[in-house]
Design a protein around this nucleic acid. Sequence first.
RNA 1: GCGCCAGUAGCUCAGUGGAUAGAGCGCUACCCUGCGGAGGUAGAGGUCAGAGGUUCGAAUCCUCUCUGGCGUACCA
Length: 557
Amino acid sequence: MGALVEKATQAAIKAGSLPDIALPEVLIERPRDAAHGDYASSLPLRLARSAMMPPLAIAEAISEQLKAGEIIDTPEIAPPGFINLRLAESFVQSEINRIIEQGPEFANCNLGRGQRAQIEFVSANPTGPLHVGNGRGAAIGDTLAASLAAAGYQVEREYYVNDAGTQADVFAETLYARYQQQFDRDVPIPDNGYPGEYMVELAMALRQQEADRFLAAPTDPPAPELREIGIELMINEIRSTLTNFGTQYDRWYSERSLYQGDNPAYDEALSGLRSNGHLAEREGALWLTSSNLGEDKDNVVVRSDGRPTYFASDIAYHYDKFQRRGFDLVIDVWGADHHGHVSRLKVATEAVAGKGEALHVLLYQLVTLKRGEEIVRLSKRGGEIITLDELVEEVGPDAARFFFLLRAPNSQMEFDLDLAVKRSNENPVYYIQYAHARLASILERAAREGHIPEEGDVALLKAPHELALVREMLRLSEVIELVATTYEPQHLAHYGIELATSFHAFNDAFRQQGDPNLKVLTDNTALTAARLRLVLAAKTALGRVLDLMGMNAPESM
RNA sequence: GCGCCAGUAGCUCAGUGGAUAGAGCGCUACCCUGCGGAGGUAGAGGUCAGAGGUUCGAAUCCUCUCUGGCGUACCA
């Protein structure tokens, strides 16, 4: 559409009705008000200054070159200088057939041109069950991945398992203490350990699986194998939580593997930094001299006791993502409490792989939980933990995902557990899924009654509410492109509501008119078949939206 | 202190520098009794936190102030 306007503008310059001026990027808007057409351009307003002409005269000159054709009708000019474009009716009608033909590929685009994108999300420490906040990260990351795939990227989903480092040690110590308690030893958990009840359950599982083979002196550190098995048990739990939530990963990437093998990524990354002069030894520790790279301060990479920091792992990990695995685009989805880490990781990634620009860290603000009026704090250490499993148990994965997706990642959100539990129309997820089920129901009934949608002629569809529904479907490709460009999945959720609204309005319009011939299924075979084409296309589009959000598209409810 | 993110209707929140700032819930009045009512239409409700600035045009960009959240570790 933008190209159309640009071409017309250049033609106007050639024809001499506009002076020869440089064109800015031609932006096309979707007007809020349907009276302003399907698309609008404010290009005349932007050109007014450099062309030294009144905007309306420019609009006139451009629209003279915009002839009505297969795609658009004659453009309209509106003060103070808009050009309003309306899709041709025949074009809108023919799009119904295209949607049906494309099916599950409908609204795909080639923005990514086959580039490889990696989305890493959730990646919570395997030291406890996932909580509600992790669910937000899962919904955002998973939907972003699906949207990027729809936009033409080759996408991999990855979970980074923090199985090295201090927290994993503390986890192992806690587990060991709980394990010993299973054998009636009076051993306390460490001061900074994990007090949650789930650690007791984990210890019971460990005892059941391994009997007493890890029982050593109470003062001994836990066996390395106990730690491995413990983390594995925890990861299995996390994996099953995410599966319940509807999220599958392509890869679970071990932090420890960065330090293992013949040629560890960690060694390679650090020697790269060293040879580029980005490392310095000081106070017995090894520092990344990030202050030379625009950061406020240097950061410790290897502690004075020789153990690498979390930051060191992250540098090696991103070195691996870019240098070894060659991703073109990497998105890390993190909770906002990690935002202090973003800038230095980007700097380090640039220094170690020259890819700082290809790394995008998407922060989501933390979730505040409410039970009615009461605020529930999220805390892994003591206090009330609402796990993601509990949430899914209460409201189902679809409702949970949808609520998380409905809010911009950058906004702090309130999740009212009491409200989300309600199975009523206060919950917009039912509104959308219900629309899909109604569409399915119409098609099912049509098949039972022997209607043949394949024979429908879409040119028979002329009612405003019919064409409005198609117009709404056509927006999906723009929404996918928007999500894939801005990394803001909430647009998809809002679009889902709007598409469902269009369908409900379409469906209701027949009822309001009270004429049995105005339903989808009527005695008029030709018209019925045409409307069934529309219904099939709508089901295709709505199903696609639900699929991108990782939600079920029910045939019945 | 410094830095990051927010502040939009009673509540929860959308809003790519464009036309009269929107949705859901709640409230009010209607429509429809259905191919699935978990529906539709309309109305009331706004100092877009505040003050300056840029622009033909600002909720949107810039500066300052206020409020809230988070960060500012040889934790992750």
